[in-house]
Design a protein around this nucleic acid. Structure first.
Length: 572
RNA sequence: GGGGGUGUAGCUCAGUUGGUUAGAGCGAUCGCCUGUCACGCGAUAGGUCGAGGGUUCGAGUCCCUUCACUCCCGCCA
């Protein structure tokens, strides 16, 4: 048996060694009467060795139930060192947390550790299963180019200089978006790919810098619902196979974008959380409400929304103040709160309760289905500010009140995204999501004079508050595409120039088509129960997009630069 | 680009109000130990307290600057 020395237990005249390989641990044993004893005793942890020996059944009282191989052990007869080791920069056998820097620099050692080793194995199995499921559903896997052209919309591109075309650059694909549409125009009707995607944007815990993988899917002659059915089938089978956690919905609920923003304050709601947001702005226009701070803000155009918590009348003051304090730490102006009580009359108890008449509280209860004994947290401000803080408050309060079943998965679809939105700074009309999406409604009757009212066949799939993917039914009609691009400030010439391949292809008989591209890394994160994408990525870069193990990015030899017709301008 | 957190031995961490020689566990090295499975026991080595500057009789501890890692905002069609 060959493997790494995981742990030694040296009794002086009797030595146990746990030998580790990809599959687990096996205890090996040797006694001091063996001539090899002294040498084996000195072997360092993590040396790679081959032991020849006898497999022995362990006596009943020495069986280790925690090991798969705990009923046997190997009595060592001879050995060979296959790979020596220096002193280790981090221990392998412990479950302790280590600094990322050292883990990433010695990733090959880190990957020997049990948890991350299992995560990577899980990743392999999930991807393999997805492939076979997609094939079973009739999809074909194709590869698309890695060296392609830069696209004007979307994220920052990674660029690759062209030696043969001095001064020109390839871009790495942000996603195979245009290619998968071209595949549909080419007459293939069900495509998928485990596709590498490259975006030069800043990292987050759930976002690798630079590169990540999508399950890229596209289908022709389909409507939105056809895409949903394929993905629902796939996700339920993947999540059932690789997790024991409960799926709250097998038919994923559909929530419109505007409803999601109102009820949850975000377009990626965690539906494991039963709390929802209600709209109360009108309450603050009543004469029998005297909460002047909010009333004055409402007069200036602010809105008021709030979250009802059920039966929280007995919660200590510290709970409510804690939430208010937390909200201020998040940069909001805080959350006003009171609890609905009743003696002879309905009234509000708490710092701002006295500002509300019985009648106004009755109205609040009607709007939000609140009852006596419930409490209400209120936020006031601009729409996007209120949405943001209440969205966070929903997670925070749900967690504190233990309302969230963390042992479950709640999928949903967010649908009916607007085609356009107004840029906050420039006040220009821009594509709110994907410029290639098909607008909803009768295309001949679309009112292009009110672009902000146009909805798109554009959708997101969300699980446990994690955005897994967005997708769309595509716009396959060139004239309509020119029209939509012109609203976003691209004239025909520019569209022809920037999207020549696409627009040209759509002019030669393009089928209606659509698709989606769920993030593989995030699916694995959800399945592995990890909060950080590096825990499910074999060789990740750090937050500054550096590979500490390989030393990337690095400076480049002058000769190579010259061949590429490039010179580097040094700062300072 | 902005805000927060962290940085002390190879690794994980403790270090009180600024006060004597900066500690523990794991790991390493050496010794003892025949049924452990986080084996046990004893000893030794190992420190620019991230770096630079300042305050002070005295700084791991206080102040300033800076670097690294990380979390968040911006950004991510």
């Amino acid at each position: 048996m060959s493997g790494w020395i995981n742990k030694k237990r040296d009794h002086g005249n009797l030595l146990f060694l746990d030998l580790r390989d990809n599959y687990g641990l096996t205890q090996c044993v040797i006694e001091n009467k063996d001539p090899n004893f002294k040498e084996i005793e000195k072997l360092p942890l993590e040396a790679v060795v081959k032991f020849n020996g006898k497999v022995l059944e362990r006596s009943k009282d020495t069986i280790n139930k925690d090991l798969n191989t705990g009923e046997i052990e190997i009595s060592i007869i001879s050995y060979e060192v296959l790979g020596a080791t220096k002193e280790l920069p981090l221990p392998i056998f412990s479950d302790q947390e280590y600094a990322e820097e050292i883990r990433l620099k010695y990733r090959f050692l880190d990957l020997r550790r049990k948890k991350i080793h299992q995560n990577i194995i899980l990743r392999s199995k999930v991807i393999s299963f997805i492939r076979s499921e997609m094939e079973r559903l009739g999809f074909l896997e194709f590869q698309t180019p890695i060296l392609t052209s830069s696209s004007p919309e979307g994220a920052r591109d990674f660029l690759v200089p062209s030696r043969l075309n001095p001064g020109k650059f390839y871009a790495l694909p942000q996603a195979p978006q245009q290619f998968k549409q071209l595949i549909m125009v080419s007459g293939f009707d069900k495509y998928f790919q485990i596709a590498p995607c490259f975006r030069d944007e800043d990292a987050r815990a759930d976002r690798s810098p630079g590169e990540f993988y999508q399950l890229d899917v596209e289908m022709s002659f389909v409507e939105q619902q056809d895409v949903f059915e394929v993905i629902e089938k796939l996700m339920t089978s993947v999540f059932k196979k690789f997790s024991n956690k409960k799926l709250l919905y097998e038919k994923f609920p559909k929530i419109t974008f505007s409803e999601a923003m109102l009820k949850y304050g975000t377009d990626k709601p965690d539906l494991r959380n039963p709390l929802s947001i209600s709209e109360f702005t009108e309450i603050f226009k009543r004469d029998d409400v005297s909460f002047e701070i909010f009333k004055n803000l409402v007069k200036k155009g602010a809105i008021v929304r709030g979250i009802i918590t059920k039966n929280t009348k007995d919660k200590p003051r510290s709970f409510f103040d804690g939430i208010d304090k937390w909200a201020k730490e998040q940069g909001a102006s805080g959350l006003a709160y009171f609890t609905i009580e009743k003696d002879s009359e309905i009234k509000g108890k708490g710092p701002v309760g006295k500002f509300f008449s019985s009648e106004s509280i009755r109205e609040i209860m009607k709007i939000s289905k609140a009852e006596v004994g419930d409490s209400i947290f209120l936020a006031c401000g601009k729409t996007n500010e209120v949405e943001k803080i209440l969205s966070q408050a929903r997670d925070k309060i749900g967690d504190e009140l233990k309302l969230i079943n963390y042992n479950s998965y709640a999928f949903c679809w967010i649908v009916d995204y607007p085609m356009f939105e107004e840029d906050e700074k420039t006040k220009k009309i821009i594509f709110s999501h994907n410029p290639f999406s098909m607008p909803q409604g009768d295309i001949k009757k679309l009112d292009f004079s009110k672009p902000l009212e146009i909805k798109a066949y554009q959708y997101d799939i969300v699980c446990n508050g994690v955005e897994l993917s967005s997708g769309a039914i595509r716009n396959h009609i060139p004239e309509l595409m020119y029209k939509l691009f012109s609203i976003a400030g691209y004239d025909k010439k520019l569209v022809d120039e920037k999207f020549s391949g696409m627009i040209n292809a759509l002019s030669y008989g393009a089928p209606p088509h659509g698709g989606i591209a769920p993030g593989i890394d995030r699916i694995i994160m959800l399945l592995a129960g990890e909060k950080n994408i590096r825990e499910v990525t074999m060789f990740p870069m750090n937050q500054n997009a550096q590979d500490l193990m390989m030393g990337a990015p690095s400076e480049i030899d002058e000769k190579l630069l010259k061949e590429l017709n490039l010179s580097v301008k040094k700062n300072k």
